[in-house]
Design a protein around this nucleic acid. Structure first.
Lengths: 228, 228
DNA sequence: ACCCTAGTGATTACAATGTAAACTTGTCAA
DNA sequence: TTGACAAGTTTACATTGTAATCACTAGGGT
């Protein structure tokens, strides 16, 4: 439970906070209660400290959030440049997705622009770009491939995380939805929802479908750069 | 300038607000000043009214935001089911992107999950799904294609909108970045940034590259469903 | 041993924001 | 005329981020 100072309030030597402990605590707090519940006072309490104490280790809430994002980004496996660009990028993308889904609050923050100031972002970008370049892609194609993959992975993470229903609620939710809806007007939507009723919310399989679509396309472009 | 009531404060018959006018005013306000500046009091002022008056037409701020999203979604061109599925979806995707870029606050809201309660969302989904189905895709392939395209388009919109620099700042920004950075450690990142220095931020061309990649891949799957 | 200083955390206070509740007023039907 | 309803206003409060200031504690130099 985060080893707060609460148990030993001020007896003996109280372990002082540090930026590290604040950020780790914040990540744990957000994982448990969601980003909306992460307030300076609340986080302080979880760390056994008053909210204002956090400002000794973090310049403001934005800085806290950036630090959290950087922590999460540094959890991800980086692809290794080499010949196996496709397998490396595939594995890297899956690692990114899994990491983001472990911290459902992260995609929002990452995509909200503020991110990228920490050291994890450039390291990750460089690894992905390097994998493409050493895989044989030109500068221009690397640029295109990077952005397409980046957008896709983050987009799926965001979509998965922001879908308001859990796997269990799906059935009831969808049924209710189908009931109150002018079904006749949206036959294809109904069919789509029915499909989801059978297969559940977006899963890793759905993610891999699109990922492989992209990787295969990129491979094809790499093999026949002037055709098409 | 939004035709507020301010000019005729309470003389004669003051035109009463309506949900419509509130939502339109909110969209205009967010377009002009950004989502962060959109407060109930501020929007009230822009409409010539106290902030609390808005609650007579909108149940709370979340409802306001949902209404705004629905308004924006209804601006988009829908694809028409038929044989020309590829061209229709391409045009539809471009229309979605352009609409979202006209309202830079919208992608965040759309992707944040709260959206989709208004009538525009199901209509749009149904049109896209129908275009795929009538284009010859199976239920399963339609499901995959829909989600891939959806994620990609929204992902690009989000990325474009949340990139913190404008086209003009790019050059100076990147130069400063390259200067203070351990260039030697991130050679591929440096190359990538240099490329962006020449080509600018993500543009519609970059979007279309990935879009065509996806559409071509889907077409290939449609033609040879059992190969690969 | 004593004080000084830096750093860590606590207190207090304030502004911005969403929104509940009660009040006012103008309009229109009976 | 009246009485009720709808639109807008006023007050008030809880939550949140954060500035400013104070208090305590540990360690170092004398």
């Amino acid at each position: 439970m985060m080893v707060p100072n609460s148990p030993n309030p001020d007896q003996q030597t109280r372990i002082p906070l540090s930026r590290e402990r604040v950020l780790l605590g914040a990540v744990e707090f957000a994982d448990a209660h969601g980003l909306a519940s992460l307030t300076m006072r609340g986080l302080g309490e979880a760390l056994g400290v008053e909210g204002m104490a956090l400002y000794k280790h973090v310049t403001n809430k934005g800085d806290l959030l950036e630090g959290m994002v950087d922590l999460v980004l540094s959890e991800m496996e980086l692809p290794s440049p080499g010949q196996e660009w496709k397998a490396e990028l595939r594995q890297g993308a899956i690692s990114i997705l899994r990491t983001l889904l472990r911290h459902p609050w992260a995609p929002q923050l990452i995509v909200s622009g503020g991110a990228g100031s920490g050291p994890a972002t450039p390291r990750q970008m460089n690894a992905i770009l390097g994998t493409l370049r050493e895989g044989g892609f030109s500068v221009e194609m690397t640029h295109h491939a990077y952005h397409v993959l980046d957008v896709y992975v983050k987009g799926v993470a965001l979509a998965s995380v922001s879908f308001p229903f859990e796997k269990e609620d799906m059935a009831g939710m969808a049924e209710a939805f189908l009931k109150e809806f002018p079904i006749a007007e949206y036959p294809h939507l109904v069919e789509h929802i029915r499909y989801h009723l059978d297969t559940g919310v977006l899963g890793e399989g759905d993610f891999e479908f699109g990922l492989d679509l992209l990787l295969d396309s990129l491979e094809r472009l790499l093999d026949q750069p002037t055709i098409g």
